[in-house]
Simulated assay, not measured.
Amino acid sequence: MIIDFRSDTVTRPTQGMLEAMMKANVGDDVFGEDEAVNALEAFAAGIFGMEAGIFCASGTMTNQIAIKCHTQPADEVICEGQSHIYQYEGGGIAFNSGCQVKLIDGNRGRITADEISAVINPSDIHKPPSRLVSLENTSNRGGGSCYDIREIEKIRELCNREKLQLHLDGARLFNALVARNETPEAYGRLFDSISICLSKGLGAPVGSILLGKKECIHKARRIRKILGGGMRQAGYLAAAGLYALQHHVTRLSEDHGHAQQIAETLQVQDFVKSMMPVETNIIIFEVNPPYTALLLTQKLKEHGVLVYAISPTRIRMVLHLGITPAMVNTTCAVVAGLQLDESGINTGFEGQV
């Protein structure tokens, strides 16, 4: 048996999701005639209280479309230094939008209104206009950390005063909503655009949605077309996304509980130096020297447990609907009984999903 914690992108559709996909009423989405896509976009926009939505192939695409919608070339985007839009989207901010980035060294992927205020550029021909603030909730490299919505409210007020747009990379937003017992409507009131991923913790095979005002989403459709993202009978995928939103949100608390259970076992092992606070479904821990992340990854793989080395010394584990309670118990037993051999230690590491 393989127990895969590398990412929550490795899930397979559930039986109910597969049935929904097979029953989808599809058409040509570029013509706006795919009923399943239209239903998904309307449902997602409705639960957030936003005007419209657009279904895209990935979260990278929805983020990059949003950035282009909100900016002009030579503008500046403000975000935290570990943000997915900066770290893992292939330089898309520069390539697609011609913008530069102002990075803030925040707290586990989160930034404050005061930190943003301190880096907004003055009106000066030597400096790019600060145009967009992008937040990430939960923060991937922050170990699944969640924003305090009161801080987001302060950031919204700042953006209003400074005439800045505010985007949310909400790839794992529903994990934050469940963990903090918050509502989508509260977030819909605060952001100019929100990207939500359907293929991570929610378990759909493909896709993300960008939400915003009608004018923004109308512009987004043109940008999606330019990027080659116009899909045809996409309703089979959209039906999976709609099923996920309707059936897989509340169960995210199970993943959070499983993460806590594994974290408690890891924390008492001598090969764990430190661990980020576990708030949702992501565990990130530092390996104690002389061991390395690669060595520990290899040893766990020998026992059928797959994890991800995100640096020479850090490992990430992500819980998802494909992980059962029995798998969690097995993982805890493997971790508790692991015997590490210092031979073959090196500093290599893998990439990140």
Rank of each mutant, 00 (worst) to 15 (best):
R222P: 03
R222K: 12
K225I: 08
G228N: 13
G229W: 00
G229C: 12
R232C: 01
Q233M: 13
Q233R: 15
Q233C: 12
Q233E: 07
G235T: 04
Y236V: 10
Y236S: 02
Y236A: 04
A238R: 12
G241S: 02
G241M: 01
L242Q: 05
H248F: 06
T250I: 06
R251H: 09
L252S: 02
S253D: 15
S253H: 13
D255I: 01
H256G: 15
H258R: 08
H258S: 14
A259F: 04
A259W: 10
A259N: 08
Q260I: 12
Q261A: 14
A263L: 11
L266R: 04
L266N: 05
V268R: 11
Q269Y: 02
Q269T: 14
D270C: 08
F271D: 09
S274W: 03
S274D: 09
M276F: 03
V278A: 09
E279M: 08
I282L: 00
F285W: 05
F285D: 00
E286I: 11
N288G: 05
P290M: 01
T292N: 06
L294S: 10
L294R: 12
L294C: 10
L296S: 12
L296G: 10
T297N: 01
Q298N: 15
K299S: 03
K301V: 09
E302S: 12
E302L: 13
E302A: 15
L306H: 00
